[in-house]
Design a protein around this nucleic acid. Structure first.
Lengths: 200, 200
DNA sequence: TAGATTGTTAATCGATTAACAATC
DNA sequence: TAGATTGTTAATCGATTAACAATC
């Protein structure tokens, strides 16, 4: 990864830049100054960020829009598709499956798995017993965990067995996993609480 | 708000501390050292954080667990209930309505509003025409926007008219709002992309 | 008292911002 | 050439970490 000389803070801003330069139909070139203005950021910061990841800026001109977009997509890994599966086909799991905003980020959710026969349709939702086989056949390492907290750990263990090494956990609980497995906890309630706090 | 002397970084860690001291049934007192160990954080950091918000630590003893919990809840505003409404009763909106993890954070989602007659049941989902009346009667200022991007801005405008001053926006688009209105964008795809990047 | 734990002051680190030289 | 924009070097700021004094 070219991550080496790119700071965490910078990496976090790249998606914003990419979104902006892809959104408005900007001209052939775009300057850091213009991006900064549009996103209400410091122009030096934008310039430094773009320089750290690309080094393709030209004085007096700026950046070739499509070239910069490609560069950002490549660094962020949006140019290659990563497949993921959902475990837990409840309301949230289904909502995520129906969401089609993932492909912009090079992500694709293949299907979901559950143990409840009533939600299994064998086209999009399969029995969790088939999880290991599916992940191995399709070389899948990312799993989205949308089951109740009460069963989260045991389902997590099943996912680990299936070869999942990165879990996006929506259950409000801490998961025990071996070293090398990445857990990213998604706490929607906390996000709303954060908004609430910001209004005070 | 006692926010004054509490840094942003500290504020962001408080929920973790609170969750931990409420989770395990810890004894009557708890030390910053123990919290740091449990959460894999620096012990000085935890001590400094707790000191910034409470000043109730006792050398050799630590913190009275329930006292610390109360303090954290009060600073984070979890001790008072804030009501919110959802606009857009699609899959995601319904999933959020059914999620019962909000109350831990002093949040309650009252009901949802939509313009699609087929999802209106007049008990949990009402017609969006009633949004303004409901928000005024119940003094609601937080709205959760779960509609498609194509109509997000126009629905946002309706919410502003209804007296909403803070919007949790799930639509992948930028909203134009007057000064004083807080927008918090929730980009689930970006979160998954972030996890994906972290595994590389 | 001795020891564990707190709170504070100083040092370090990382990120942002400011100043400026380089260049198309 | 002049001017806009880049990239770089130095200064500032905020947060983390280290060292240590205070205290139950």
């Amino acid at each position: 990864m070219a991550k080496s000389n790119v700071s965490k803070a910078t990496l976090g801003r790249l998606p914003m830049y990419l979104e902006y330069i892809k959104s408005a139909d900007i001209g052939k070139t775009i300057s850091a100054t213009a991006i900064a203005r549009a996103l209400s950021l410091g122009e030096v910061q934008v310039r430094k960020d773009l320089n750290a990841v690309s080094g393709i800026g030209k004085p007096r001109v700026g950046y070739t829009t499509h070239e910069l977009a490609e560069k950002l997509e490549s660094i962020l890994g949006y140019d290659k598709t990563t497949h993921a599966v959902i475990v837990g086909a409840g309301k949230l799991g289904k909502a995520l499956m129906g969401y089609n905003g993932f492909k912009t980020y090079g992500l694709e959710i293949d299907c979901a798995f559950d143990s409840d026969e009533s939600v299994i349709d064998n086209s999009q939702v399969f029995h969790v017993d088939n999880l290991g086989k599916y992940c191995k056949e399709h070389d899948i390492h990312i799993g989205i965990l949308t089951v109740p907290s009460s069963v989260a750990q045991s389902v997590c263990d099943i996912m680990l067995d299936a070869g999942i090494t990165a879990i996006w956990n929506f259950a409000p609980c801490r998961l025990k996993v071996p070293d090398g497995v990445v857990i990213q906890k998604e706490n929607l309630a906390l996000s709303l609480a954060h908004l609430n706090l910001n209004t005070k």
